[in-house]
Design a protein around this nucleic acid. Structure first.
Length: 582
RNA sequence: CGGGAUGUAGCGCAGCUUGGAAGCGCGCCGCGUUCGGGUCGCGGAGGUCGUGGGUUCAAAUCCCGCCAUCCCGACCA
């Protein structure tokens, strides 16, 4: 492959586009790899498409190696399968819907579990056909409420999705492990810095699930990692270890106290510490001794809304993202003034457990930090009064527990107790053990060796291919521009000619020789000034830059490494063997 | 959906406060010049000032509505 910049469909931009914030987005647009077509929708220009294709190829090779078979569904899908699985409703606004001239409903596929399941149901009916893994690399559509950061969160994006079909749980486990191994190989080959973390299965349903997160400060996912053991989890999926049980009989009976002028946790703690009769003998009161009952509105997919009260320690916030992972597909939202007006029993700022509970019409869940035997100060359901020494399990109970309190840097590891470190990442892959949810809904069964109908168990596995392009750019760029790893660069060598004493001709010949030696070559034959040629070469980010310039008169060229910036002189005739022999 | 900001030439922006002939830089076209880090000079092409209404002799500028985009929070590959 030989690309000449004089004819390549490319225009680099000197300035950052106004709508781009994160580095990968800015650089991919400036370097002429992609262009925005609509919010969250991008056009792939020749160089960008080359990178996309390379990433696809690596993914494809590893999926094939893992024994999965490629096929491809349409992006335009009929309503019916999604109606059957319940997702026509569950997916809500996130789904692009359209109608044909006859008034039939269609959608642009946000994911394809239904289609795969139905296809296998159509074609297979025996346990002898299993196990089976199928995949496709395809464009997905999701009407994201907020597309962001260029390719990182688009409304149209390229995804590799695969599905495994097994007769039993052990088979599913094997298929899952194969996919996991294939993902590790794929992301290693692409040169990514990533972690594998425990995840919630979310809207997909099912049980075990892990995410592959590329470490990156602008990532949208927060995860924790244990400093001492190998525990790692998305913050949504962290399980807080229950505090050691305390002896409730050691606590005095609960008593209501007048606490005027304490609208906030902070003022309440201050007052508790200031009152001689309430002061703790062992240590001062802190916000962590208070129980905060936060009201949220739980909105169900069918539009129904109900209040839900979540009890968390007063020094922590309710993390709506974590909460949602446990109450999905319902979505928790903050309460509005109107919502509070509809529930006069809930006195804002003073909500106590004795008015809560499913039996009283308001569902009440507590975070695991609120464990049996723990002692709390909390609201007494009227302004200016609080209950002290209220013991969970003795004085009040909830309808259940839910992991909802925010996770902090330094929180104990659920496995070994060492402090957790919190960090951010970009979700580049997600693997699920779906189980039988879709197979049951769509009636995918096979006959086992005894001739009995058995429901198939499934796994679902995704890689965000277009997102990977941006993620790699994000992890590898520097202040001068893109800086591709060799495995995904749109070319191997960028040849630049500067000067007029025959350099252009020599560069062109060198480029042709490099191509003949099997390298992918980009040559800057535009005849622009050296400054422009060098700056663009650094912006485009091809790993090796060869300069045919000043030293050409002595038969020398300069070979630069884009990443390290190192430069060395080589005789012109040695370049091909040197670079091709890499 | 809540909060913040922005819409003026292909791109990046000024002009708006205080209404009075649409500007600058980059890019693009032509001629010359220069040639290892965005050379310099001369001459050009290119704009319904997001949109609808209002005020006014006169609106990019003032007022009202709408639309769009970006950023920050709740969703996901």
């Amino acid at each position: 492959m030989l690309l000449r910049m004089s004819t390549l469909f490319l225009r680099t931009l000197r300035e950052d586009p106004a709508d781009a914030e994160v580095p990968s987005h800015r650089l991919l647009v400036r370097a002429g790899y992609v262009r925005r077509a609509a919010p969250g929708v991008y056009t792939w220009l020749p160089l960008g498409l080359a990178v996309l294709h390379t990433v696809e190829r690596v993914v494809r090779e590893e999926m094939d190696r893992a024994g999965a078979q490629e096929l491809r569904f349409p992006a335009l899908l009929p309503r019916e399968p999604y109606e059957r699985s319940g997702r026509w409703t569950e997916y809500g606004e996130l789904m692009f819907r359209l109608r044909d001239r006859r008034g039939n409903d269609y959608l642009l596929g946000p994911t394809h579990e239904e289609m795969f399941t139905l296809l296998v149901k159509d074609m297979y009916s025996s346990y002898r056909d299993l196990p089976l893994s199928l995949y496709q690399i395809q464009v997905k559509y999701r009407d994201e409420p907020r597309p962001r950061a260029g390719l990182l969160r688009g409304r149209e994006f390229v995804m590799k999705d695969s599905y495994s079909f097994d007769l039993d749980d052990a088979g599913l486990q094997r298929s899952y492990e194969r996919h996991r191994a294939a993902y590790v190989r794929t992301f290693d080959r692409l040169g990514l810095d990533y972690v594998v973390v425990a995840a919630m299965s979310g809207a997909m349903g099912g049980s075990a699930s892990e995410e592959f997160l590329a470490r990156c400060p602008i990532g949208e996912d927060a995860y924790v990692r244990c400093a001492s053991c190998d525990y790692a989890a998305n913050t949504e999926a962290v399980r807080v270890p229950a505090p050691p049980p305390t002896d409730p009989s050691a606590a005095p009976s609960a008593h209501v106290e007048d606490t005027p002028g304490t609208p906030t946790i902070e003022t309440l703690v201050e007052l508790l510490n200031a009152r001689d009769d309430l002061r703790r003998p062992d240590r001062p009161w802190t916000a962590a001794d208070t129980l905060k009952n936060v009201v949220v509105k739980l909105v169900h997919p069918d539009g129904r809304a109900e209040p839900l009260v979540v009890g968390v320690p007063g020094d922590r916030e309710v993390d709506l993202k974590r909460l949602e992972a446990h109450v999905g597909p319902a979505v928790p939202e903050p309460m509005t003034e109107d919502d509070f007006a509809a529930h006069p029993a809930l006195v804002r700022g003073s909500i106590g457990p004795n008015v809560l509970g499913a039996d009283k019409g308001v569902r009440y869940l507590v975070d695991p930090w609120v464990a049996p035997g723990t002692r709390w100060v909390t609201g007494a359901n009227e302004p200016g009064r609080h209950v002290v020494d209220l013991v969970y399990g003795r004085d009040f109970t909830a309808d259940g527990t839910v992991e909802a309190a925010d996770v902090r840097d330094g929180d104990p590891c659920p496995r070994c107790g060492a402090p957790l470190r919190i960090d951010r990442g970009i979700e580049i892959g997600h693997i699920f053990q779906l189980g039988r949810k879709y197979a049951e809904a769509l009636d995918l069964t096979v006959l086992d060796e005894n001739g009995r109908q058995v429901v198939v168990t499934m796994g679902s596995y995704g890689i965000g291919i277009s997102r990977l392009v941006a993620t790699i750019a994000e992890q590898t760029h520097d202040e001068r521009g893109l800086c591709w790893p060799r495995a995904v660069a749109p070319a191997d060598v960028h040849v630049v000619a500067v000067g007029q004493a025959g350099q252009a001709e020599a560069a062109d010949k060198l480029a042709a020789d490099l191509e003949a030696a099997g390298l992918r070559v980009l040559v800057d034959d535009r005849g622009v000034s050296a400054g422009i040629a060098f700056t663009d070469a650094e912006l485009l980010g091809i790993p090796t830059i060869v300069v045919v310039g000043r030293a050409f008169a002595e038969g020398q060229v300069e070979v630069r490494d884009r990443r390290s910036g190192t430069r060395r002189a080589l005789p012109l005739e040695a370049v091909v063997s040197e670079l091709a022999g890499r």
